[in-house]
Design a protein around this nucleic acid. Structure first.
Lengths: 329, 329
DNA sequence: GTGAAAGCGCTAACAC
DNA sequence: GTGTTAGCGCTTTCAC
């Protein structure tokens, strides 16, 4: 910058004015400075700016694990928005581990990140207190004091279950995610409200699986052996639904003829399985976009409106439930 | 920091010494400073350190698209290593777009990132010249002046093709990736060296598909219609292999009985399809780890040894090729 | 319209 | 063993 100033025969202050387009600069001077910048290939040092401003134009996204296909799409959406605003995007895998989250928070705040978007089941007040910049909860709800973007998980759980009924399923099991995650608990509630008062419901139709495919497969296999009467499975995410389908396949149970399977999320892998997976699709990319936009707004305006936004889910009917509709009941 | 100094009744220089463990500090003074730090919850400002040092302890990974399941695993590996070294990890989706890459390079160097790991087919000398920090090419080779981590793509292509022959395939087609990518060109060369001199090979058995599932499906469908004699497909990545399987399914062609399919990469989605996908598996996580370790080393030692490392691939035999072995020829 | 100078928070000479 | 100070590269009052 000093070089530029010298070259254009002005002071660094003027160079700064030109770069930032702030303050009045004589058009001729401006031109001279611009040429000097061009000629010297000058690029402002962002670190120095950050030091002065206390803002880095970086935001971070915390996800439990990027290897679950749900999250790359979310990450992609956030990155696209941050690019639009000329921000830099930092992705952090937390493994759902509070320690890791806390470490990331410290490190990143020392680097003056301007905001956080967090997918986490382990958000604590301690954690929130540490964070002095805007923060948005995504995919999982924490409490009403924290701005959040989620889908209507309860409604989704309900619809998925009712849909299985509507295609003729008489015994519907549910694969639930980890208890700590608010989203899966809501989906469970939706399921329970449909099945609780039926004459067939058994508590052993309810499996707790940690959003994990391998585990879902093993547990489903055992359940289907003990309960051959099950003719429908609602899995709380697509990855578990795929595990359930693998289990059925291994047991020689046909999908969808003997057993209908519906997942939750709408990840594109669901199109790659055979049969393709019916699912309650979330508008994943839109949610990521919205969360990022909201964060940008909070960063720019300095106000945190604690908005709670809930997106709808929609039924994506594919092969794993494609039966002729049957009258039932 | 001034607050800490005041509180501990020392100068900022001493505080700095304590924090960095450099220079001699009287044990008692040290203790006092440490207590002050503790008491005031002091965290050093990393931006100021970066400004002074010219190094940010951040590295960036460029990938074409995080939504291809191959890359999350790579990204995960890199992140794990950067965490180990207390570095911060920045993920960038380039969409294979040179403009985006160039923009990222500028932005990040202004933020003083310490190194780059780049998965790209569009690396240019112009790009390399812009980068004044260590850089490693991953998954795709550029030229011998640039350190790189790849697999033996030629050997993999060869083995995949020979394997299809060994299980009795008589007419083997190949789905190729984008011409600009060195990896797919090598796989193609491996395939060609096996089939070129056979009496059955036709140039129309060779399809160019851009690593894209939808496109692979459409093109495979057309090829299988025109060439019902094809009984084996080697796809240059798993995503295209899945597209090919979808195409076969839609045409009522049975896998593996009528048509054997082998992919390349070894992404875990290959286990979720049915039939599960046979593939030439790359040690994805190891490659990511190695690239990151190599970068860390170059950053620390300031020397760039231009190492070219080639990892082996191995055959992962799954259902999409599970036939009884047949004598042939 | 432009320049001089202070200061963002830290580190590394250099004194003492 | 510890304090003083210059300076990393930038922005922004405050004079002129």
């Amino acid at each position: 910058m000093r070089d530029v100033a010298k070259f254009a025969d002005v002071s660094v202050a003027t160079v700064s004015r030109v770069i930032n387009g702030k303050g009045d600069v004589n058009p001729e001077t401006r031109k001279r400075v611009e040429q000097a910048i061009e000629y010297l290939h000058y690029k402002p040092n962002d670190v120095a700016r950050t030091l002065f401003r206390g803002k880095s134009k970086m935001i971070a996204l915390f996800v439990p694990d990027i290897m679950n296909p749900f999250f790359p799409e979310l990450a992609r959406a956030v990155e696209d928005v941050t690019n639009k605003y000329n921000y830099t995007f930092i992705l952090c895998n937390t493994d759902g581990d509070l320690e890791k989250e806390l470490t990331y928070i410290d490190t990143l705040q020392q680097k003056a990140v301007d905001g956080f978007i967090i997918v986490s089941s382990t958000i604590t007040d301690e954690m929130l207190k540490k964070i002095s910049v805007p923060i948005i909860a995504l995919d999982r709800f924490f409490h009403s004091e924290l701005a959040s973007i989620t889908v209507d998980n309860y409604q989704g759980g309900r619809e998925a279950t009712e849909y299985l009924q509507s295609i003729g399923c008489q015994r519907i099991a549910h694969l639930c995610g980890p208890e700590s995650a608010s989203n899966t608990m809501e989906r469970l509630r939706g399921y329970m409200d449909v099945v609780r008062d039926t004459d067939w419901f058994l508590s052993s139709y309810l499996l707790s699986c940690n959003y994990n495919m391998e585990q879902a497969k093993v547990m489903t296999m055992e359940m289907l052996r003990n309960h051959p009467e099950i003719d429908g499975i609602f899995a709380a995410n697509d990855v578990m639904a795929i595990g359930a389908m693998k289990a059925a396949e291994q047991l020689g149970i046909r999908i969808p003829e003997d057993l209908a399977v519906i997942g939750f999320d709408g990840i594109s892998v669901g199109e790659a399985t055979s049969p393709t997976l019916t699912t309650m699709a979330q508008p994943i990319y839109d949610m990521g976009t919205r969360a990022a936009e909201m964060l940008m707004e909070q960063i720019q305006t300095q106000v945190a409106p604690k908005t709670i936004e809930t997106f709808p889910v929609h039924l994506l009917e594919r092969e794993s439930t494609k039966r002729k509709k049957v009258a039932h009941g």
